[in-house]
Design a protein around this nucleic acid. Structure first.
Lengths: 122, 122
DNA sequence: TTGCTCCTCACGTCACGTGAGGTGGC
DNA sequence: TTGCTCCTCACGTCACGTGAGGTGGC
């Protein structure tokens, strides 16, 4: 439906639980274990964002479908994040290398040109 | 002690269990779940390699220290393997890019030289 | 008042580790 | 025979999910 995830925390716990097809008490447990940390309103009510819901769904998939416990979920989510970071970092390094080599090329080209046409050199 | 891991399967289950500080029955369970698959001798005896022992230690660390269950261990070991592969792959691509750009440089240099010294060109 | 929220306590179920028990081949 | 191996069965413990019970503010 939505083109991008709404990161504004807007869902109270009952709605969040329905959206992620789980139980409010389970969400409170996830928070206690530091797995999903919703915003709190001024009067202490938990408020979940779309991103939170998506994370809850991912956790549900790991626990219910794959049988992973919450200690495992924590490690796995960290590793997935690490993979994402690694990919981005290496993408960046790739681009950086390309630019460095382009610069080196220009430098070498300049030197070669100076050798071939001494009148232009110092 | 050893410089590199011996991949020959040489340890029977009691020795393997002692080396990894666990119990033979636990190793049988790991095998049943497909986590550690030792060789079998002609008379059906399990034989573990150094690499197997190292993997068992890694599993022990995940379960005993970090509290991850075996379903989680399976996912985590897969992800760690994926990270290793990803790193190697991108290392390779990095080197490949370097060579491609070097080739491109030589090509561009050749063209420039032809322009600057028409007598040498066709 | 109704329907939500907050919290804590407790129970059922299941996975994992571990031991026991009985077998068989060097 | 001794000490290993193989296997299966069963129990204790713990984590997780879930419900109940009692509170408080729109």
């Amino acid at each position: 439906m939505q083109e991008r995830l709404n990161t504004e925390p807007v869902y109270v716990i009952s709605i969040a639980a329905k959206l992620a097809e789980t139980h409010p008490q389970t969400l409170r447990m996830y928070e206690e274990k530091g797995l999903v940390c919703p915003f709190r309103s001024a009067n202490n009510i938990r408020l979940y964002s779309e991103a939170d819901i998506e994370r809850i769904r991912q956790i549900q998939n790991l626990t219910q479908v794959m049988g992973v416990n919450l200690a495992g979920v924590e490690v796995i989510l960290d590793l997935l994040e690490k993979i994402r970071t690694l990919r981005e970092e290496l993408e960046k390094r790739h681009e950086q290398l390309r630019q460095e080599m382009e610069q080196e090329f220009m430098e070498r080209l300049r030197r070669v040109a100076m050798n071939m046409d001494p009148s232009g050199g110092a």
